[in-house]
Simulated assay, not measured.
Amino acid sequence: MNIIKKTITGLLLLFVLLPLAAQEKPDTVYIFRFVTDKDMFYVPFSGNDKELARLEECVERYRQDILAGKIPLHVDGWCIAGESEADNLAMAKVRSNRVKSELIIRQGLTEACFVTKNHSGSGDYVTVRISVPKVATAAQKDERQQAGQESADTQQEQRETEESRFVAEQIRADSMVVVHPEAYVPAETTGTAAEETSGTDSYTLSLRANLLRWATLTPDLGLEWRISPSWGILVNGSWTSWSWNDKDRRYALWEVMPEVRWYLGEKKAWYVGAMFKAGQFNYKFSGTGRQGDLLGGGITGGYQLRLTEALSMDFSLGLGYLNADTERYDVIDGVRVRSGNETKHWIGPVNAGVTLVWKLF
């Protein structure tokens, strides 16, 4: 009789515990490591492939809620390899975009599925956190109702605390790992591949102002469209019109200068380009004035120094050819009297700039 009772009791316990054992606790934090001084996402590097497989499985399980915005993917990028905090934040942003691009391509997600933050310090990695709601069994729900347990807000705080503790433990473990740049650099990885996965950092529009022009009382504004990380199309325009001493003195000018640039290097800071310039001028600083048309072009080169996330300083110099058809004139009783004309050719510096660049989006 005792054996029968023990058997029945064991079966009852088994039926109660089976639903609890069948519930799988989903992984909520995934860490992807990056080679120091590199922003490429090497999937086979340092276990990233296994971590990506786990993340894809979790995303597939909750795909509908993720796409509906109910379960966001929190992406945090980290970097300590830069020379300054701004460099670290810029590198962390690119790394976050690499991981997001991988998920967008593999899982069909969108940018709206992510909540992204970037940080300077701690390590060279990207974490993806998924806050999956816990599903309680019917027995647990009855217990919570009877015991009057804490509210949903308190439960959410507990989940976030556990996840933060897990991330902190992973960060401490990451600080003990020494990663060498030569540890894994696949042969097929090229600059072109990096550009194609640059994410939202690629296609930007910036407002430009050449401070050298403004210093000569010549307002100058321009726009640059980065159609990819390596290529940019920009145009600058200048205009001014001054006269004094009853219009006996004159300084007037307008110019338009379109340009195509090719950005070089890992950080895409150095560049070379080709420019074209056209405009008209009217100068009279002494007895004889000169007015006419100018036309030319050449090659440009320079460097963009990042100041903040949105501001940069662009130092540029252009060398090439300019043609100016000039008409000389004198002012007699307030009337311009033509005194001759000439054509001038110039080969050498044709443009210089110390330009403030403001990234609009």
Rank of each mutant, 00 (worst) to 15 (best):
L295I: 12
N97I: 01
G296Y: 02
A310T: 07
I3S: 13
W225C: 15
P133L: 02
N97G: 08
E143S: 08
P133F: 11
G353L: 00
V35D: 01
E342W: 02
S96A: 15
A90W: 14
D314F: 01
V59L: 04
E255A: 07
S241L: 06
I105S: 14
M1S: 13
M1V: 09
G199M: 01
I104M: 13
S120N: 07
L319I: 15
Q280V: 02
G334D: 05
P258H: 03
R33E: 04
L52H: 05
V260L: 15
G318S: 03
D49N: 11
T127C: 05
A278M: 08
L20T: 07
E259Y: 03
W78A: 07
G353I: 00
W244A: 01
R61K: 14
Q170N: 10
R338D: 07
T326C: 12
V75A: 02
T36L: 14
R61F: 04
R165Y: 10
K70C: 00
R95G: 02
I3G: 07
K70L: 10
S238I: 02
E51S: 11
M176N: 08
R290T: 07
V337T: 04
K267G: 11
F285W: 13
E182K: 03
V337D: 12
M1R: 10
E83Y: 04
A252M: 06
K70S: 05
T192Y: 05
A152N: 04
G279M: 08
Y125D: 05
Q304D: 10
G148M: 10
G340I: 09
E83T: 09
L11S: 06
D153R: 12
M1W: 09
K344A: 07
A193T: 11
P26Y: 12
V29K: 01
R165M: 10
T190R: 12
Q107F: 09
G353V: 00
Y283P: 00
V235S: 06
A112M: 08
S122T: 14
A278N: 02
M176C: 01
D39C: 01
L217E: 12
S316H: 07
E143I: 15
D220A: 12
A187G: 12
G287S: 14
T200G: 14
N245D: 15
D76N: 14
D330L: 14
D37A: 15
K141E: 14
A168Q: 12
E102D: 01
Q170Y: 13
D76L: 10
L67W: 07
A147P: 00
N282E: 07
K141T: 15
K267M: 07
W78Q: 13
Q291S: 06
A269W: 02
T154K: 10
T9A: 00
R129N: 02
W242V: 12
L89C: 03
G108H: 05
L12M: 11
E182V: 06
V272N: 01
S243R: 03
L20M: 05
G301D: 06
T343G: 06
E309Y: 11
L103D: 04
S120I: 04
S202P: 01
V177P: 04
G237C: 08
E143A: 12
M40A: 13
H345G: 11
A310L: 02
G296K: 09
K25R: 06
V16P: 01
F315A: 11
R226L: 08
V185K: 11
R61M: 11
K25M: 02
F285G: 05
S230D: 12
W231T: 01
R172W: 06
Q155K: 07
Q23H: 05
R129K: 06
F166K: 08
E196Y: 15
A90E: 03
I80W: 06
